[in-house]
């Protein structure tokens, strides 16, 4: 069974970077896949990778992560400024971040318009009669 845990923006909005990373890591280390509203700051993404590397061992081999973010380069300047102002007030809740444990998620393939999540096939063991 695959468990997806939704993390709404409101749950991480008031947390500092370290606590955000800790919270996400805890879910992933419980073998669940995180579906987080919004995205981490670039420095938080590298912080998450660092934390992941510190914790790699036989039972935890890292993470797969993918962020989908709305295209910004085609947006009109006024809309861009308005969106940046909104982000300042409300935080960056645009987009979605998927994080899964590497022992479950083999690969997350992303093209601009779609995400494909590949998991490891664990063939069911046959019961002996």
């Amino acid at each position: 069974m695959l468990t997806l845990q939704i993390v709404p923006y409101g749950e991480i909005h008031n947390l500092g970077s370290d606590d955000r990373i800790k919270k996400l890591m805890k879910i992933v280390k419980d073998d669940k896949i995180v579906l987080m509203q919004g995205r981490l700051e670039p420095e938080e993404e590298t912080g998450l990778i660092q934390k992941t590397m510190e914790e790699v061992k036989k039972s935890f081999r890292g993470i797969e992560i993918c962020t989908i973010y709305p295209e910004e380069h085609s947006v009109e300047i006024f809309d861009k400024l308005r969106s940046q102002f909104a982000k300042m007030l409300l935080g960056n809740r645009e987009g979605i971040t998927i994080i899964g444990p590497a022992n479950i998620v083999k690969e997350i393939r992303r093209d601009p318009n779609k995400i494909q999540l590949y998991t490891f096939n664990k063939s069911p063991r046959r019961k002996r009669k």
Binding site: K58, G62, E64
Partner: peptide, 8 residues
């Protein structure tokens, strides 16, 4: 190289 997973 920067990676998010390392499996021996």
């Amino acid at each position: 190289g920067i990676a998010t997973r390392i499996d021996f």
